[in-house]
């Protein structure tokens, strides 16, 4: 049985998203929540890139979007980590 091209990637994207969403809801520790969010975001990125390659030619726009998205994710993670550090230092 042959699957349509990209099916594997789409499944992987869905799986990553599900793992991340699950972690975001169930994990108590803030660090794990931030990591879970990053995993889920990676799922969205994978979806974007997969959708970009399903045509006959590779569409560059999703790649540009994912590149920007990675920069955004990096910045948000940095802010989140900074906040977590400050919260830890304040712990009585």
């Amino acid at each position: 049985m042959s699957l349509p091209p990209g099916t594997l990637f789409l499944l992987a994207a869905a799986l990553l998203f599900a793992i991340g969403a699950h972690g975001l809801v169930t994990c108590r520790h803030l660090l794990r929540k931030v990591l879970a969010l990053n995993v889920a975001t990676t799922g969205v990125f994978l979806l974007l890139v997969t959708l970009g390659r399903s045509g006959t030619a590779v569409d560059p726009v999703p790649h540009a979007m994912v590149l920007t998205g990675i920069v955004v994710a990096l910045s948000t993670t940095a802010v989140a980590l900074g906040l977590i550090v400050r919260l830890q230092r304040q712990r009585p």
Partner: peptide, 26 residues
């Protein structure tokens, strides 16, 4: 600080779901 952290997580969750919508429509 705790409120800021909750806001950040809610905000990031919101933008991730929004980006998922962008990916689906694109």
């Amino acid at each position: 600080l705790q409120a800021a952290m909750r806001y950040l997580l809610a905000g990031l969750f919101g933008s991730m779901i929004y980006l998922l919508g962008v990916a689906l429509l694109y």
